[in-house]
Simulated scan of single mutants.
Amino acid sequence: MQANAPTPTGVSASEWDARVKLAAAYRMVARLGLDDLIYNHISLRVPGEAGAFLINPYGMLFSQITASSLVKIDTNGRKLSESAYEVNVAAFVIHAAIHNSREDAHCVLHTHSDASTAVSGQPDGLLPLSQFAMRFYDRQGFHDYEGVAIDLDEQSRLVADLGTHPVMLMRNHGILTVGRTPGEAFMLLYYFERAAKIQLAMQAATASGIPLVMPSPETCEKAARQFWEMKGDILVPGEREWPALMLELDRTDPDYRS
């Protein structure tokens, strides 16, 4: 289906637009190698349908997901659209909890990406060692590992640990980001993963006796505010980058729209 194709019968224009953008996020995560085969998940609220969100069909690779293959469920886990696929139980537990509790969490993204998972096992998580990391200074939550997230009673702790943060490290497990759009949630993952890779490289260098240089807390907070208060020409994550990424997908991998 091309970019200007009509909306499928029985699906609202707003839902189809959401499906296309969410499918694009899955493809972009796969293109950057941040996925985990059929596991991990990204969800997006369905516009105008309270309690409904879209999520990946359990059994498809991120690189195979299309707009029409996404499964619509409610926050009780019931399927609201026909699909031959089920939804990962852990995906429902995690995503339903966040969608129910955070008004701004239209898109919830969870991966086991390597560098983010590596720093999730460090006491302080992501350190302010690069400009990529400054965006997350004092703005990352931590959720202790409790096993595979399939128990409903873990939902309250997930919500409490995320709080108002844009990102949460799930200890010894992975990362979770929330955004107002798929583009925002994806770009937060992208920048966090870049920062985590740089941190690991810097920490590896300390084995050769090279010390780390840590900016002052005042400087780190200043930089974080520049990002979140959108100083200068800084915009909401994804606002400038996401349209360009979708254009690239349309050029090289357009079947995500089908």
Rank of each mutant, 00 (worst) to 15 (best):
P182I: 06
K197I: 07
E229N: 13
Q226S: 14
H173R: 05
A223H: 01
V178G: 08
P215V: 06
M230S: 05
Y190Q: 11
M202E: 10
N172R: 14
G232D: 13
A201V: 13
G174A: 01
L235N: 07
S208L: 15
A196W: 12
L200A: 05
A201L: 13
L189K: 03
G183E: 07
A185N: 09
A223Y: 00
A195R: 01
Q226G: 14
Y190N: 13
L212W: 04
A185P: 04
K231V: 00
A185K: 03
T219V: 10
E184V: 05
D233N: 13
P182D: 06
M230K: 14
M230F: 13
G232V: 01
E218F: 08
A223N: 10
N172F: 04
A207G: 03
Q203R: 15
S216V: 01
L212C: 05
Y190C: 05
E229S: 13
L189P: 11
M187A: 02
S216E: 12
Q226K: 13
Q226I: 03
V213Q: 14
E218G: 09
M230C: 11
V213G: 06
I198W: 02
F192H: 15
I198Q: 11
L188E: 00
T206D: 04
R225G: 05
I175G: 09
I210W: 06
D233T: 14
T219N: 09
Q199H: 08
L200K: 13
Q199W: 07
S216A: 14
A223G: 00
L188G: 05
A201D: 07
S208K: 07
P215N: 07
I175C: 10
G174K: 02
P211C: 01
P211V: 01
Y190M: 11
A204C: 04
C220Q: 08
A204P: 09
P211Q: 02
A204D: 14
A195V: 01
L200E: 10
V213P: 00
S208V: 01
R194Q: 15
T206P: 09
P215G: 08
M187T: 08
C220I: 07
L200G: 09
S208Q: 12
I210K: 12
K222C: 03
R225T: 11
V213Y: 10
E221V: 07
Q199Y: 08
M202D: 07
T219M: 12
E218S: 13
R180Y: 01
R194P: 04
T177R: 02
I210E: 11
Y190K: 10
M187F: 14
G232P: 00
A204K: 11
M230R: 15
E184F: 04
E221I: 08
D233K: 14
L235A: 11
E221F: 05
R180H: 11
A224Q: 14
M230N: 09
L235D: 09
P182L: 08
T206Y: 06
I198N: 12
I234V: 15
F192S: 07
F186Q: 04
I175P: 13
Y191H: 15
M214I: 15
A205H: 11
Y190G: 01
F192A: 09
F186D: 00
F227E: 01
R194S: 07
P217W: 00
A185R: 04
R225P: 02
E221T: 12
V213L: 05
A224K: 15
A207D: 10
K197Q: 15
E218I: 09
A205M: 14
A207K: 13
E184L: 06
